[in-house]
């Protein structure tokens, strides 16, 4: 869009910025603020920021990939995110953008002189581009947030806790796929190395289903644990999982199992030669 070089300055001359700011702010109060999608202060601040950045952009007449356009893009993505977060729809945001666009176009239209079609076309293209970029950014931010949430969930769903000196407990919750099993194994082994742990209790109470592939992953975790010199005890196997395990063509000889977490802890004490007595 090198058209900004051509039309930026001439458009700038035609716009009464305080008039435009007032119109957009009033429209914002009447729609977005009224529907509680933005506060009055937000409408006021965002409008002023938008108008300031837009005038700067026209004045600079630089490429639309520069700093000012980026700031404009981020501003509109933030406005969109706020509207969506407060229960608004994409339509509310688009309506706002259309209103801003038409307000500027109105300023540029010269009733007596019809030779400003190119300037209007430029504004049309500019706002389309801005809306698209703001959406793209909003989308990316949402995807990043979802990814972060997923990572957080993974971290929370594999909480490795040292429940006794030298005993680590890892309750597995949810579905265990290849990626998660690998992540779990890495974290567990790092923790074994760090804490010099000798017994690991893998609790499957929170696992609803298990198939051959998942069991192979678990066996690899148990085997890797043993290679590091620790003993793994599998606990909390539900009857449905026990049935599946019995049907799987897997050698379970190297796996120590106990019915519950507390039984697993007793086994850990036995391995560590720890005697716990009631006073």
């Amino acid at each position: 869009m090198s058209e900004i070089r051509k039309y930026g300055k001439s458009i700038l001359k035609k716009i009464n910025f305080s008039n435009v700011t007032q119109k957009i702010t009033n429209a914002g109060y009447a729609s977005l603020a009224k529907e509680n999608l933005l506060t009055d202060e937000e409408v006021h601040d965002y409008t002023h920021e938008f108008v300031e950045l837009f005038s700067l952009l026209l004045e600079d007449s630089r490429e639309l990939s520069g700093e000012t356009f980026n700031a404009l893009k981020h501003l509109m993505a933030t406005v969109n995110a706020k509207i969506q977060m407060r229960g608004g729809s994409t339509e509310s945001f688009l309506q706002l953008m259309h209103f801003i666009q038409y307000t500027f176009m109105d300023e540029v239209v010269d009733e007596e002189n019809e030779k400003n079609d190119r300037e209007l076309l430029f504004l049309l293209k500019f706002f389309n581009n801005l809306v698209m970029e703001a959406f793209r950014l909003y989308q990316k931010e949402r995807e990043d947030a979802l990814k972060a949430q997923k990572e957080e969930f993974l971290a929370v769903s594999t909480p490795i806790t040292e429940i006794w000196d030298g005993v680590l407990s890892l309750p597995v919750i949810g579905t265990l796929d290849s990626g998660r099993a690998m992540d779990l194994m890495e974290k567990l082994l790092e923790r074994i190395e760090l804490r010099r742990s000798k017994v690991i209790i893998l609790d499957l109470t929170g696992v609803s289903t298990i198939d051959t592939q998942v069991m192979h992953h678990l066996i690899q975790v148990i085997r890797a644990t043993a290679l590091m010199g620790a003993t793994a005890v599998l606990t909390g196997i539900r009857p449905s999982i026990a049935r599946s395990l019995a049907n799987l063509n897997i050698n379970l000889d190297e796996i120590q199992t106990k019915s519950t977490l507390s039984e697993g802890l007793k086994e850990a004490f036995k391995i560590l030669k720890i005697k716990v007595e009631k006073n």
Binding site: E186, S197, L227, E254
Partner: peptide, 24 residues
């Protein structure tokens, strides 16, 4: 044994190794 070594070794062995393993 380092975690990375344990992961690499556990990916191809199919039974317990003939030697003992210990943390320390």
């Amino acid at each position: 044994m380092k975690p990375s070594a344990a992961i690499s070794l556990s990916s191809f062995i199919t039974k317990k190794p003939p030697f003992e393993t210990a943390i320390e």
